[in-house]
Design a binder for these strands. Structure first.
Lengths: 328, 328
DNA sequence: CTGTTAGCGCGTTCAA
DNA sequence: TTGAACGCGCTAACAG
C-alpha cells in the first residue's frame, strides 16, 4: 500500500502539498496539483482511513440500529437510508438490536466507540421510556418509535391518526365489534391502540383490545387462543403491524375462516404479500422510503448544525382499501 | 473522553501496563491489574478504535455486501451473520449493491479503504464471471452465487440438484409442459435452469424456459405477456426465486387463474407468505440461517488461516410440498 | 513484572 | 505557494 509520503516523493512535493490537494483546500499551484493527482493515480494511493480519523477526530460513518432486520418495514427504511448515504459516499454501520435492550445497549456503546458521526435508531420501549438526550455522545435520530414528549429528533408515522382512520373505515362498513391485536410492549402498538380506542369511543362502542407479543408466530397463536374464548366471531379484526397481520391471516386460514365474509380483516403495513391474498388486504401503508430519507436528512442536518431545535417529523399513513374490508 | 494516559496516571502505572491489562496479554501483577480495571471504570475509559487500528493495522469489522437488502433471503442470511458477529463483538458493515456492478465496485473499494478484516459478498454476475482472487486485498467469502470453478471460498445452495428435484416432483405429479421463469442475468438462475432442464431431458420433455429480470414486478409483467403468447396454459409454472414467485402469483391472480386446478405453481424460497396463499405453495426452502452462519465461519477461518485451501460449502435445498402442486 | 519510547499515516500549524 | 515538524491515541519492542 502506498503512503502519502510515497505520493509526495513520486510527485516531487511534500506530504503537506499532497494533503492539501486531496482535501481540496489551501492554495496549491496548478502544476503541483496535476503532478500530485497523477502520482495518486500512478501509485493507486488510497488514504488510510484509520489515520485520517485519528488525526481529524471525525468519521463519515453513520450508525443504524433497527429492531428487526427481517421486518420489511425496517429493510425498506434501511434501503432508503443506505441510498442517501451511498450518494454522499458515507458508510452505514447497520445493526440489529432484535428488540433486545441488552443488544441495543451493546450497539449504542459500539457506536460511541466507533465515533460515528451520528446514529439512527428505532428504540426499544425500555430505552424510549427512559430516554435522555444527554445519555448520547453523538447526534441521534429516532425512527418509527418516539413519543410526542421525547426530546429527540424523530421521524414517525402519525399512529393515532392512522389507526383511527382505519377503525373509522371499518365502522363505516358497518362493523361494530372490532378486535385489535397489538404489540403491548411497543410504542407504536400503544399509539395505534389509542387511535383505535378513540374511533370506537366516538361511535359509542366498546373496544376489544388484545395485547400480544408483536411477532407473526405469537399473533397466530394468540388469535387461535383468543377465538377459543369467544362465543361468536367479531365483525372485524385489526392488526397493529404487518408481522401481526400475517400471523392473523395464518390463524384464520388454519380455522378455515374467510374474509371478508366470516370476518373482516385489516391492518398496518402495505407488505408485498397483502396483495395476493383472496381477497387482498385493506391496510395502512407507511411511506417507508420517505421515512428513511427524512431520517438521514434530519441526522445530517443535526450533524451540520448541532444546536438547532429538535425536530419531529410526523408522516401520514395512507389507507388502502382492498377486498378484505368490503363485505358483500 | 479519557485517554489511556489518564487511566495510567489514575492507576499509578504506565500506559504500557494499561495496554497490557486491556489486551489481556503480557504479564501484569494482580494488584496492578486491579488498579487499572478500577481506573478504567472510574474514568469510564473507552479505547479509541481509530488509534488502535492505525497502530495495529487490524480491524474487527467485517463487510457484508448483499445484492438486495429487501430480499428476505438476504435479510435472513444477514441476520445469521450478524448474530455470529455480535457474539464475537465484531462489527458488520452492511451494504446494498442493488445488483449494480458500479455500486458493488464502490462498496468493494470502501471495504479496502476501511481495511476490514474480511468481506462476505453475493456478487453480481459481471463480477463473478471475471472473478480473480488476486483482485481482492482482503479475505473474501462468496455467498449465494458462485460457480464450481470460481476460485473462492463460497457458501451456496446446490441449485441444479434443488431445481431438478422440484421439477421431478412436478413430473411425478403428471405435469408435462412445465414453464420455468428465471433470472437470466444471475448465476443462481442459470444453475437452477440447468437442473430443471436436466430433469425434463431425463423425462424426454421439452423445456419451456422464460428468462426475465428477477424482480417481482418484472415477473408479474412477464407472466402476463407470456400468457398472451400461449394458446393453452402449461401444466405447471416454476419460479427460480421467491421474488419471482410472488410476481407470478400476482399475475395469476390478475388473470383470475387458480392453482393447482388451472395451473400448478411452485418455486424457490420458503418465504413467510407462501403459507397463506390458497392453497399454500410448494417450494424449495433454503437453509438461510445455516448459509449465513457457514459464511461467516468460513470467513473467520480464512482470516485466522489465510493459506488454507479454498472451501466451497454446498447446501441442500429442502423440497416442501404443499397444496399448489397437489392437483385434484 | 514494569516503564520508556518509537512509530502507525495523516492533517495542520508555523515559517519561509 | 510550499515544506518541516508535531501530535492524534495507541501498541509493541526493548530495556530495566
Amino acid at each position: 500500500m502506498a503512503r502519502i509520503s510515497d505520493v509526495a516523493k513520486h510527485a516531487g512535493v511534500s506530504v503537506a502539498t499532497v494533503s492539501r490537494v486531496l482535501a481540496g483546500q489551501g492554495s496549491v499551484s496548478e502544476s503541483a496539483r496535476e503532478r500530485v493527482l497523477a502520482s495518486v493515480k500512478a501509485l493507486d494511493y488510497h488514504p488510510d482511513l484509520a489515520a485520517r480519523r485519528l488525526r481529524s477526530g471525525k468519521t463519515d460513518t453513520l450508525g443504524l440500529i433497527v429492531s428487526d432486520i427481517r421486518n420489511p418495514y425496517f429493510t425498506d427504511v434501511s434501503r432508503a437510508i443506505e441510498d442517501v448515504a451511498y450518494a454522499r459516499g458515507m458508510r452505514v454501520l447497520l445493526c440489529n438490536a432484535d428488540e433486545d435492550p441488552a443488544k441495543e445497549r451493546f450497539y449504542l456503546d459500539m457506536m460511541r466507540d466507533e465515533n460515528v458521526a451520528g446514529v439512527i435508531l428505532s428504540p426499544t420501549l425500555q430505552l424510549l421510556s427512559r430516554f435522555r438526550p444527554e445519555d448520547f455522545s453523538f447526534p441521534l435520530v429516532l425512527v418509527d418509535r418516539s413519543n410526542p414528549d421525547t426530546h429527540a429528533d424523530a421521524v414517525v408515522l402519525d399512529n393515532p391518526d392512522a389507526a383511527q382512520r382505519l377503525a373509522r373505515h371499518l365502522l363505516d362498513r358497518g362493523c361494530r365489534r372490532i378486535a385489535f391485536f397489538y404489540g403491548a410492549a411497543s410504542a407504536t402498538g400503544s399509539q395505534r391502540l389509542a387511535g383505535y380506542r378513540s374511533a370506537l369511543a366516538d361511535a359509542g362502542l366498546e373496544p376489544v383490545p388484545v395485547p400480544i407479543r408483536p411477532t407473526t408466530e405469537d399473533a397466530r397463536q394468540a388469535l387461535l387462543a383468543w377465538l377459543d374464548t369467544q362465543s361468536a366471531l367479531p365483525d372485524a379484526i385489526v392488526a397493529s403491524s404487518g408481522l401481526i397481520l400475517l400471523g392473523l391471516i395464518e390463524g384464520l386460514r388454519e380455522r378455515g375462516l374467510r374474509w371478508p365474509d366470516d370476518v373482516i380483516i385489516a391492518g398496518f403495513d402495505d407488505m408485498a404479500w397483502t396483495r395476493i391474498t383472496s381477497p387482498a388486504l385493506t391496510v395502512i401503508a407507511q411511506p417507508t422510503a420517505d421515512i428513511g430519507r427524512s431520517a438521514i436528512e434530519l441526522l445530517l442536518a443535526r450533524i451540520a448544525e448541532p444546536k438547532q431545535a429538535m425536530r419531529r417529523i410526523v408522516m401520514r399513513g395512507e389507507l388502502i382499501v382492498r377486498g378484505s374490508s368490503q363485505p358483500g
